[in-house]
Design a protein around this nucleic acid. Structure first.
Length: 265
DNA sequence: CCCCATGTTCGACA
DNA sequence: GTGTCGAACATGGG
């Protein structure tokens, strides 16, 4: 499900639990989401009795601190976070439930592509430094972007934008949104972009990330602006705001939606 | 029954 | 080692 702003939105769903200790932990130790955690029991030992202190996100990853340990999560394709009343029984796909006196912090993930693991607080600073610069950070420079694209000589620009080591948080719909705003054909090899096209891509990447965070990251209830590709892309027979029918095709292994009129190569 | 899904990883190959 | 691609992962919805 989640890309940059949705991950932030979901992570913040647990905010009501800040400052309160975990009284009990329920998990399904055999669930695939613990494949990076050899002994899921360690999660219970580490978190139980600890206060929920702070939340961070980076790209599609989220981090929750309980005392001296960070619980790190990736929501995969179908994961989401919610808060439930303390008496609610866990559902079929609730693989991780952190109980507090007044509520339960729930992770639900039917497909179980998500993944959870632990980080010591002492290791967090060093770990954080290893993460790639976020698209909206000052370290994400035009020069850096240009270097990356030049190295992906053959790969379609669409597929390149999904590389999390280059564009943390960009997912399928954000990549399409950015390319649509750049009037770029998603099949174009990344290495074929001109200096001017690269500069425009840099600008639009940052714009879409900032706007997505502002609009979706805070209140997902608001309808997405009609000036985006986003609200037009889902239904079959969708039309670009320019009037032309949108095209859907698999590019770099993912369904890609674009406007052949606006995004001619 | 079919096909599709906002993601990542792993193995194969150039 | 680097870059690229397709399959696999597991489940539910149309």
């Amino acid at each position: 499900m989640p890309e940059l702003a949705e991950v932030y939105y979901y992570a913040s769903q647990w905010d009501p639990g800040h400052g309160h200790p975990i009284t009990e932990v329920h998990l399904h130790p055999q669930a695939r989401i613990f494949r990076q955690l050899p002994r899921p029991q360690r999660l219970i030992e580490a978190v139980q009795g600890q206060p929920f202190a702070e939340t961070r996100t980076h790209g599609k990853q989220c981090f929750f601190r309980f005392g001296d340990v960070w619980l790190a999560g990736h929501l995969g394709m179908s994961g989401h976070l919610s808060v439930a009343k303390p008496t609610k029984a866990p559902g079929r796909h609730d693989h991780l439930v952190l109980r507090q006196a007044a509520r339960q912090l729930v992770y639900t993930d039917p497909r179980m592509f998500g993944s959870w693991y632990l980080l010591d607080h002492s290791a967090m600073t060093a770990f954080w430094e290893t993460l790639p610069p976020e698209v909206t950070s000052p370290r994400f420079t035009k020069e850096r972007l240009h270097r990356f694209l030049q190295r992906r000589t053959r790969r379609p620009i669409k597929g390149t934008l999904l590389d999390q080591s280059l564009f943390p948080g960009i997912g399928n719909w954000m990549a399409d949104e950015v390319l649509w705003r750049c009037h770029l054909d998603p099949r174009r090899p990344a290495g074929s972009l001109s200096k001017e096209e690269t500069a425009d891509l840099w600008k639009k990447l940052r714009l879409v990330c900032r706007q997505a965070m502002r609009i979706i990251g805070t209140s997902w209830g608001d309808p997405p602006p009609k000036t985006w590709l986003f609200p037009h892309r889902w239904k079959d027979g969708g039309r670009c705001p320019c009037g032309a029918p949108l095209v859907r095709e698999t590019i770099a292994g993912r369904t890609t939606c674009w406007c052949p009129t606006c995004q001619e190569s």
